[in-house]
């Protein structure tokens, strides 16, 4: 009897360390984030931190830019990632090499990516060199100036699209691999073009993968801040950057926690929206 009892307990024993760790370093700080955000300086509960947050001059632009960035980057990323994923699945020669190359940015940090694109867009950078060499510009143009919010945003979009497409690509390839080849061959037999296949077979069947990738990308995008700092300095600001600034520069963890709480709520809301908007109807599962 005792060996049986022991066997039944084994999985729980294996889970225990993870559960404890996640409770202390995940559940606790999550509760704490909201507690901090609603805590007044002398103790007691208050909405002051949120009022301070909203009244801050940087709040509205940070909020707007964060959302704008997500709205622009995600479609670009998904188009790029789907192209890459289809190329990987096209059974090309050297597809292993292509996969490696496409996956490299997966291991590149926001900060490094920001610096890379800063090197390209800076006044004496590569972009200006090319544009003047081609005669499009006669002298270097200052793309990354505080006055050029459009260019700042553009550079950040490129940097983020460059860096974070890999993860979407990998998830989509994994999803594509789970689509049986017969489905596509069946589509071929019925005379589907590549375009038809992508829109009528691949994308609908890829819905679960798309959902996961969208959720992941959106949540990560809410946390982006180092790319913007590296590319645009103070030129544009994002919610996570404000959280960082309130903590580090203004030494006010409560308002910083209010930002954290806001980001968390936004993340959860967007996850719920994706889960609801992209759910696979029960009757369409095999």
């Amino acid at each position: 009897m005792s060996t049986r009892r022991l066997q039944a307990l084994t999985p729980y024993a294996l889970l225990l360390p993870s559960v404890i760790f996640l409770l202390v370093f995940f559940a606790y700080p999550m509760v704490e984030a909201f507690t901090l955000a609603f805590r007044a300086e002398g103790g007691g509960w208050t909405l002051d931190n949120f009022q301070t947050m909203i009244r801050d001059v940087a709040f509205a632009p940070a909020f707007r830019t964060t959302l704008l960035l997500i709205l622009i980057i995600i479609p670009v990323q998904f188009a790029l990632a789907l192209t890459m994923a289809l190329l990987i699945q096209a059974k090309l020669k050297f597809s292993g090499l292509f996969l490696y190359i496409y996956a490299i940015p997966l291991g590149i940090s926001e900060l490094a990516a920001g610096i890379v694109w800063f090197a390209i867009f800076t006044e004496r950078g590569y972009l200006n060199t090319v544009l003047t060499a081609l005669g499009i510009l006669d002298k270097p143009f200052i793309f990354l100036s505080y006055q050029n919010t459009g260019w700042l945003l553009f550079a950040v979009v490129l940097a983020e699209a460059w860096r974070a497409t890999s993860i979407v690509m990998v998830i989509l390839v994994a999803g594509l691999q789970s689509i049986p080849n017969e489905f596509l061959e069946a589509a071929d037999v019925f005379g589907a073009t590549l375009w038809d296949k992508v829109w009528r077979v691949i994308l609908p069947l890829l819905r679960p993968s798309l959902q996961v990738a969208l959720i992941l990308r959106t949540i990560l995008a809410f946390q982006v801040f180092a790319v913007a700092l590296a590319v645009a300095g103070r030129g544009i600001t994002l919610l996570a950057a404000e959280a960082y600034r309130w903590y580090n520069t203004y030494r006010d963890p409560n308002v910083a926690a209010a930002f954290a709480a806001l980001i968390m709520v936004l993340s959860i809301v967007s996850t719920i929206l994706y889960l609801w908007g992209l759910r696979t109807p029960e009757e369409q599962t095999l």
Binding site: F26, L36, A243, A257
Partner: peptide
Amino acid sequence: FRGRETFRLLVVSTRAFPIVILSIPLAV
């Protein structure tokens, strides 16, 4: 075992949270 799916779901759902942001309360 009982609770396996619950645990798995909990772990998966942590990805719906911006974990990095948790460093602010943790710092405190």
